[in-house]
Amino acid sequence: MSNNNIVIREITLADNIQIAKVIRDVLIEFGVPKVGTAYADASLDCMAETYAKEKSVYFVVTNKGQVIGGAGIAPLDHGEGNICELQKMYFLPEARGLGLGIEMMHKCLAKAKDFGYNSCYLETMPYMDAAKKLYAKVGFECLKKPMGNTGHYSCHVWMIKTL
């Protein structure tokens, strides 16, 4: 796949169906439980509306107009302090290994700083090794317990980064 046709942009209503399918397909690929993870989130089918809220943004990655990945920033639900959460960062196999993950991380974290957040929190699965390496590479550190109330009780790796 050529990087010439790849675009990272903010989500639109027209992207809702595609990004929901991307996220569900990746979660199924990795054997993630359908309960207690992003798979069951009510927001998955209305991502553009969900991230249209204050201090929130979601970016999609497209290739020739087809959504192949995405990631977003939103306030951490029931979090203490000025903390955002990196949410729903998933890429289809054809989007992996192209540097899009690091590019997306930088874009999301820059936006989090613009919004005035002090820290960024995330949750992932223990066996998502590539994701954990990427998060560590940009400065996320592991926590011993979860923060806030994301509803993702099946995610057992919690990380945070000071912005």
Rank of each mutant, 00 (worst) to 15 (best):
L86D: 08
T62D: 04
S56P: 13
V57S: 05
V138L: 09
C142R: 15
G36P: 09
E123G: 13
L92K: 12
S119R: 15
M159R: 04
I23E: 11
V138I: 12
N16R: 04
L122P: 06
I68F: 03
I8H: 07
I160H: 01
I17N: 11
K107E: 09
A131D: 07
E141R: 09
A136P: 06
N63L: 12
A112M: 03
L76G: 09
M104D: 07
N16L: 00
Y58L: 10
I73K: 05
P93M: 05
E54M: 07
T150H: 06
E123M: 03
N118P: 01
G65A: 08
K53Q: 12
D25R: 10
G69D: 05
H156I: 03
L13P: 02
F59K: 04
V67E: 08
H156A: 11
T37Q: 04
D129Y: 13
I23P: 01
L143C: 00
Y39D: 11
N63Y: 14
G65E: 01
S119I: 00
G139K: 06
H106F: 08
L98Q: 15
A48H: 08
V35M: 12
V138G: 06
G97K: 07
Y117D: 03
V32L: 02
I28K: 11
Y127E: 10
R24P: 02
D114S: 12
A38I: 07
L13I: 09
M47Y: 05
G69C: 13
D77W: 06
T62E: 15
I68L: 03
D15E: 01
R96G: 07
V32A: 14
L13V: 12
C120D: 06
M159Q: 11
I102C: 10
C84R: 12
V157E: 08
G151V: 13
H78K: 14
E94Y: 05
Y135F: 13
G81S: 07
N149T: 13
M47A: 10
A40T: 06
S119G: 05
A40C: 12
N5V: 12
A14D: 14
G70T: 05
G31C: 02
G116V: 10
I28R: 11
I28S: 06
A20S: 13
A74I: 05
N118G: 06
T12P: 08
D129P: 00
K34P: 02
S56F: 09
A14M: 09
K21D: 13
F91I: 08
D77G: 05
G72K: 01
Y90V: 01
A40Y: 00
D114P: 00
Y39C: 01
V7K: 15
F140N: 07
H152S: 09
Y90D: 01
A52T: 02
A131E: 04
A40P: 02
P146Y: 05
V7L: 10
D129F: 10
I6G: 07
G101W: 09
C46T: 14
A74Q: 15
Y90W: 02
K34C: 07
N4H: 09
M47G: 03
Y39S: 10
L134N: 08
C46S: 13
Y127K: 11
C108K: 01
Y121G: 11
K133Q: 14
H106M: 08
T124L: 05
V26S: 04
E49F: 00
A136G: 07
A112V: 02
N82G: 01
I160Q: 08
G101Y: 08
M47P: 06
Y153G: 14
M1C: 10
